[in-house]
């Protein structure tokens, strides 16, 4: 617990001074923070609750569209972001209610379809979404004279998003809900014997995960300023979010954030250093983690720590 709070403090302090030290590297940092937040939010469902979603781009896109469409109708982002969160939770409820009865990989497969459906809606309902060309955010309000299009402002928003999601997970990991998530992940029948309704627990996890992801999606919309349906609702984005969490360590507080730092950071470094070979190295990295540290990087560390702590206690 204290470790987590220290970690959160370090993130906030480092983040607070980062723009002053590296003013030229804000875009990459925003990407790291957004992915950290998304992967952490994904992990509420995918890691803590064990229900792998390959459709979280749906919520990113939903958030981005709500903020963009809101902006074009004069609705400020601070109203649009909560609205996006609620919309995402409602979507997750409907989607989970129909698919959580399916056991095994069917939920994961169904998630792919939902992002695709949203993409088709975005393309075909041009009156609302700008169709295949997408939607452009032309103006944003300037609260206290802050330009929300500036990279510095966006960096701090992304930092607040990532820190907020991580803080949420720190709390969840300690309270009843967090244990319900894990119990359902481990064994649904045993969870029922402990008085839990597995479908209800999964629904609540999905709604929280979706709402948090959509907030980051709304920020992403502001960063992009131009939202295209085939980019924002892409399977690639969904898979990246899931992989970030899996490589970093599912079901751990810091795993997804570490995954974001490694994957987005390494992805960027490889792209500039190795040009064409970068995808190859990216692929090898993923394979190495899946083969040698299947619990993910932080997942493996946490497991060793728990074992060591118990062994020490048992000896003394």
């Amino acid at each position: 617990m204290t470790t987590h709070l220290v970690g959160l403090g370090v993130l906030v302090v480092v983040g607070a001074v980062y723009p002053l030290v590296f003013p030229g590297a804000l875009t990459i940092a925003i990407a790291v923070l957004l992915f950290a937040g998304w992967a952490t939010a994904w992990d509420v469902l995918g890691g803590w609750n064990g229900q792998v979603s390959l459709g979280h781009a749906s919520f990113v896109g939903l958030g981005a569209y709500v903020v963009a469409i809101g902006a074009s109708h004069g609705i400020a982002p601070w109203w649009a972001l909560p609205l996006a969160a609620v919309a995402a939770a409602v979507l997750a409820y409907g989607w989970g209610w129909t698919t959580f009865r399916l056991r095994g990989p069917y939920f994961s497969l169904s998630t792919i379809a939902v992002a695709e459906i949203l993409r088709l809606i975005a393309i075909n309902e041009g009156w609302l979404t700008g169709g295949a060309t997408g939607v452009f955010i032309a103006t944003l309000p300037e609260p206290f004279g802050i330009d929300l299009f500036s990279r510095t402002a966006q960096f701090y928003l992304a930092l607040a998003f990532a820190a907020g999601v991580i803080a949420t997970v720190i709390v969840v990991s300690r309270i009843r809900f967090g244990y319900q998530l894990r119990a359902v992940r481990e064994d649904e029948e045993a969870a029922m014997a402990a008085g839990l309704d597995p479908t209800g627990v999964k629904l609540r996890a999905f709604m929280l995960s979706a709402a948090l992801t959509a907030v980051g999606g709304g920020l992403y919309g502001m960063v992009l300023a131009f939202i295209e349906p085939h980019v924002i609702f892409s399977l690639l984005l969904s898979v990246q979010i899931a992989l970030t969490s899996i490589i970093g360590g599912r079901g751990t507080v810091w795993g997804p954030a570490v995954g974001a730092l490694i994957l987005v950071g390494a992805g960027e470094a490889f792209r500039t250093t190795f040009a064409q070979a970068n995808l190859l190295i990216y692929g090898v990295l993923i394979l190495a983690v899946v083969l040698f540290v299947p619990r993910g990087i932080v997942g493996e560390l946490v497991r060793r720590h728990v074992r060591r702590r118990y062994a020490r206690r048992a000896q003394s």
């Binding site: 244990y179 319900q180 894990r182 119990a183 064994d187 014997a193 728990v306």
Partner: peptide, 14 residues
């Protein structure tokens, strides 16, 4: 059917 990834105490906490 213990919750394998949890500790003994956490198992009973559920």
């Amino acid at each position: 059917r213990p919750f394998e990834e949890l500790t003994v105490l956490e198992n009973v906490l559920v």
